[in-house]
Amino acid sequence: MRLSKFDFHAPKTISEAIELLQSKGPDARLMAGGTDLLMKMKHGAVKPPCLISLKSVPGLNAIRFDESAGLTIGATALLSEVAEHPDILRHYPTVAQAARATANVQVRNMGTVVGNLCNASPAADNPPIHMAMRAVVLIEGPGGKRELPLDEFFRGPGVTALLPAEIVTGLRVPRMPVNAGTAYHSLSARGKLDCNAVGAAVMLTLKGKICEDVRLFISACGPTPLRGRKAEEMVRGKELTEEIAAKAGAEAAEESLPITDLRASADYRTEMVAVLTRRVLKEACQMALTSQPA
């Protein structure tokens, strides 16, 4: 179907965008790449009277890497830019991998990582690894600037912790600790180019062979990406043996809250949470081990 009628604004600054959000009322919608929003509009699921694009705000698409501060991904940085950025490929390989796993070439050349987060789909590719890596959401609103850990950002399908007229201007991902490894795996019914039926991401830090810290997030198995706390407990302070990885998988499966929908049954999802958890733990551990000085 055709798009419903709407006004279009492309402010040049964030404060202008905030003002527009305030003056146009709660039905106005913010847009980066538009790859989610315009589809919803085409299907008549939302009919916003006003669209505010962030694409004309200079510098908002910047990707910056700093040895101490880590990585900052601007709100309008494209998925394809994140997927191919040399610093990200080097220091945050799993972040690049998740961006590359998102949708298809056309969407990656239009859509943004921050947009993928703000759309708040529980099945989205980018949230789990960023949550595992302790990413922080940079927010600006009528009340000024604030920062929020990403794992407190999602409140439900399509729902975030943003207050009225607030804008996510970027995402900061701290540097990976020394001796850490990351991994992200996802599954879907069609081989490639598909919406996930289940996903798992992890960051794990070793001290010798012992897993000192671990953060595990599961996607598409609940209203938001879920943290696998009991699975983490199973791993923390231990050496990641086959047995421990399998036990952690079982815990994560226990903790997940999958439903049966078009993309998979709840039973299959539960089972796959165990498999993917085991696989990401082992992969991240391998990466952490190889990153350690001999």
């Binding site: 069609r190 081989g191 490639k192």
Partner: peptide
Amino acid sequence: DYKMPNAMD
């Protein structure tokens, strides 16, 4: 959601 294989498959 109608899973037709695509070029990559």
